[in-house]
């Protein structure tokens, strides 16, 4: 399953809940304000790093760039462009947008 998160992890508990519900083989894609969760040096970095062992984590590059965050991405988080976003949706049997 592909989990898509678009909320800032500092404003909503969406990312934490999503990571807790991401099963083996699941992937998490961070978009819009969700991409702050893909960055290092902050209060949620450990939670995301902890999830990386179990779950693939992706972040949408145009959203990182828009927010001045493209050079701060946690090692192991993969960045994708819009085509990569489409590929991820196509690769997974189901996807879920966490609101």
């Amino acid at each position: 399953m592909l989990h898509i998160v678009n909320k800032s992890p500092f404003e909503k508990t969406t990312l934490a809940s999503c990571l807790a519900h991401a099963g083996p083989g699941a992937a998490v894609l961070l978009i819009e304000d969700g991409v702050y969760g893909a960055t290092k040096g902050n209060a949620v970095e450990d939670a995301v790093r902890g999830a990386l062992g179990r779950t693939a984590v992706y972040a949408l590059a145009p959203d990182l760039e828009a927010r001045g965050m493209k050079d701060r991405v946690i090692e192991g988080v993969k960045t994708v462009d819009y085509e990569g976003f489409v590929d991820l949706v196509a690769e997974h049997k189901t996807s879920q947008s966490w609101l």
Binding site: D33, Y36, E65, A66, R67, G68, M69, K70, D71
Partner: peptide, 23 residues
């Protein structure tokens, strides 16, 4: 405060999301 501090971050490049960079 809170996520508002992100408004002021240097290096914002919004071409990819096709909205105006107002920073």
């Amino acid at each position: 405060l809170d996520d508002g501090v992100y408004q002021l971050v240097k290096g914002q490049q919004t071409r990819g999301i096709e909205v105006k960079n107002f920073s």
